[in-house]
Design a binder for these strands. Sequence first.
DNA 1: TAAATTTAATAAACACTGTTTAGTAAATCC
DNA 2: GGATTTACTAAACAGTGTTTATTAAATTTA
Lengths: 212, 212
Amino acid sequence: MGITERKTREKQEMRTKILEAAKDVFIEEGYEKASIRAIAERIEYSPATIYLYYKDKNELFHEVHELGFEKLTEEFRLSDSIENPFERLRALGHTYMKFGITNPEIYDLMFIQKAPMEAIKETDEGWDCGLTCLTYLKTTLEECIAKQYIQPTEINLLSISIWSYMHGLTSLHIRDRFHIFKDFDIEKLLYGSVELMLGMIKQNTISRPENQ
Amino acid sequence: MGITERKTREKQEMRTKILEAAKDVFIEEGYEKASIRAIAERIEYSPATIYLYYKDKNELFHEVHELGFEKLTEEFRLSDSIENPFERLRALGHTYMKFGITNPEIYDLMFIQKAPMEAIKETDEGWDCGLTCLTYLKTTLEECIAKQYIQPTEINLLSISIWSYMHGLTSLHIRDRFHIFKDFDIEKLLYGSVELMLGMIKQNTISRPENQ
DNA sequence: TAAATTTAATAAACACTGTTTAGTAAATCC
DNA sequence: GGATTTACTAAACAGTGTTTATTAAATTTA
């Protein structure tokens, strides 16, 4: 019977319709103004309708957060063609930071807000999209170690460190904590910091001939 | 005339009464549940009364955020007695991270939420309390450089980097992004990361005899 | 001291928020 | 064609920050 098939298809279409509206409101108006009512109004449905397709706001925001990860992963993929793993690492760093600065509201949802993580806790799934991005970093770092650009280091320790560093720079910046450096070009400081870190983890190798 | 003096004193007492209540609600109930009504109820006044002493929620939260900085600065001061600047740097790092993990809601307000920064924008003051803490880090780093524990580096670049690193570790942790390392002892990874960073910035000096 | 004025506090309202419930109209099934 | 399921929504509930009009008390003035 084709009706049930059409119905499930329509149900899915409505979900993506809501999801896209949520994403748009999010990007245009920001986290604070992304209310259920605002999203409902955009698709010309009543607020209550959204609850027929999403359990609650957390679940909806969790899916928006997944969209964000799809976009970030997509941008990460652009660096796949870079042969040198250390150069690829630099590119990933720049991509990550630029993503955060360009899409602060989505970045907010992906790495700062509690909501998406609470949605995960209510299911038995893990933070798959986060894991995917982390794996991207991990494999690049492993390759850097294999090709002796970086001193051998426990990979979880190293990846958590690089990620935290990049997140620290990005999040303190988009949350306006760097205004105290008002006499400096902040973006220049940010990219300078990335280079400082890259220099530090690379220099270790250069200065240790026994690893070469 | 003693009346006006008493009045201004009472006005100040009421402000601190509200402020302390706000801080307590904040610590006990968290950011989300720290509503004007909840704060008002705790001091047994009507919500409207708070607006006679504070312009809006942002201004009140800004003062709570300042209390947080007083506490953090206090804890930083405990490391003043450490002679070796590099050991002092390690202590500051541990203090910072422990502060964030122990007081996640206050840390939230100090380094994550937008609200306190918006309160600053509306006045002509800067982020003085943030600057104080940063100066603490800066002077320690400068001393590290002077005593050749750390390779000479532009001080703003270096301090922004160390701070971002510590904030990245702390904030990703308290916002539950490290659950993907579920097979590991996360706190161990965190302190391990601090050691990794310390090792990296120190090693540069050791491996460069021309600086010693 | 009595009246006028200033001050302090609040109840109630406004415009929002997420979410639930009851009810309606249309589509589908028998 | 009548019964049933489905899709949707209006209205309500409990909460939010904030403003306004009003009241009662404290203070000043005459």
